[in-house]
Simulated assay, not measured.
Amino acid sequence: MKKNYTKIVLDLLMAITFVLLMNPRVLDGLPIHEIAGLVIGVAILVHIGLNYQWVINTTKKILDPILPKKTRFSFLLNILLLISMAAVIVTGILISRVVLPSLAIEGSHTIRELHGFFADVTLALVGLHVGVHWQWIMSICKKAFKSKEGKLRKGVLASVILSLAILAGGIQWFASTATPSNGEFMPKQMQQSEQATNNGNTTNQGNTTTTNTNQAPPNGDFREGKFHGKEGHGGSSNPFLVVLNYFAIWAAIIIPTYYIEKRILRKKRESKLRPQTS
């Protein structure tokens, strides 16, 4: 049971970290974005390790027709999720500017597009993953917060609330004190444009002539450092708004997935109870 609690806490922390990573300008900007991206990669390996036994047993039985369809679907979903997350990490390394700049590829606009695409795919797959396992998650949470007698465990509830309050306070403090590293996001074209603007402001004796050579980035976005939207996924760089935004997106995926699965299971039970006519 403690292992299940560990998995849920780890998954929750991974979920919060992942949605914050969807906007590179959250918190301290690109440095934290890249470092947290590598950390979440390690967390994924830990997650797989905690589910190692299930992975091995399911892999051995994947071709067995007796294996439940839900288990087979969950296994396929996990494989796709692992591939998409690996693609996010690999493409992130190939466009790194802070942590691993030596591995970055010059003129990596296409890789940036792939990085954003796989991040979106991963976001959707995580929602499906949680939706499929929602009943299990609720079962573990009920056991965590309620005793065998059905009484609410106030100590556990208080510790969870305190932990969330500390986490929220830490995020708010960091967001309010850290200086966003906007320079990391400014592409060379814009930097050169600003320099040209300064050099283009000329003043003649008795006649002032101002030449503004500042050019807007192509298509209104960063060509060399393009991220979704003006400030990355979600628009706002406020960490709380980013978390609420993406958790709402997940809810839009989890709720229908849960009820579709529930409907399928109900139909299966009804078909088994229905008397067979010869």
Rank of each mutant, 00 (worst) to 15 (best):
S176I: 11
I161P: 00
T208N: 10
N182D: 15
S163V: 02
G200W: 00
Q135E: 08
Q205S: 10
L164P: 09
A168I: 12
Q191G: 11
W136Q: 08
T209A: 00
K146W: 06
L162G: 09
A158E: 04
S176D: 15
Q135V: 00
G206K: 14
K148N: 08
T177W: 08
T203L: 04
G183A: 14
A196L: 09
G155H: 07
T209P: 04
F185I: 05
Q192P: 02
Q189K: 09
I166T: 10
T179D: 14
L152P: 00
L157I: 06
N207A: 10
S147N: 13
V132D: 04
M190E: 10
I140M: 07
T197R: 03
N199S: 14
L152T: 14
F185S: 14
A158L: 08
I166L: 09
M190I: 12
T211W: 05
K151L: 08
M190F: 10
W173T: 15
S176Q: 11
A158D: 08
I140D: 03
T202F: 01
V160A: 09
K148C: 01
Q172V: 05
Q192G: 12
T179I: 09
G200T: 03
Q135Y: 14
I161V: 14
E184D: 13
Q195I: 03
F145C: 06
T197P: 00
E184A: 15
K151H: 06
G150D: 04
K146M: 12
V156W: 06
I161L: 15
S181M: 11
L157C: 06
F185D: 07
A165N: 08
G169R: 03
G170T: 14
A178L: 04
Q191M: 13
T208Y: 09
Q191F: 04
M186H: 01
N204E: 05
F145I: 10
L162S: 14
F145Q: 01
I140T: 11
I171Q: 03
M190R: 08
T179R: 11
T177R: 02
A178H: 03
M186T: 12
F174S: 08
K154L: 04
N207T: 13
A196F: 02
E184G: 12
E194C: 07
T202L: 13
M186Y: 11
C141K: 04
M190D: 15
C141R: 05
A196S: 06
V132H: 01
S193D: 06
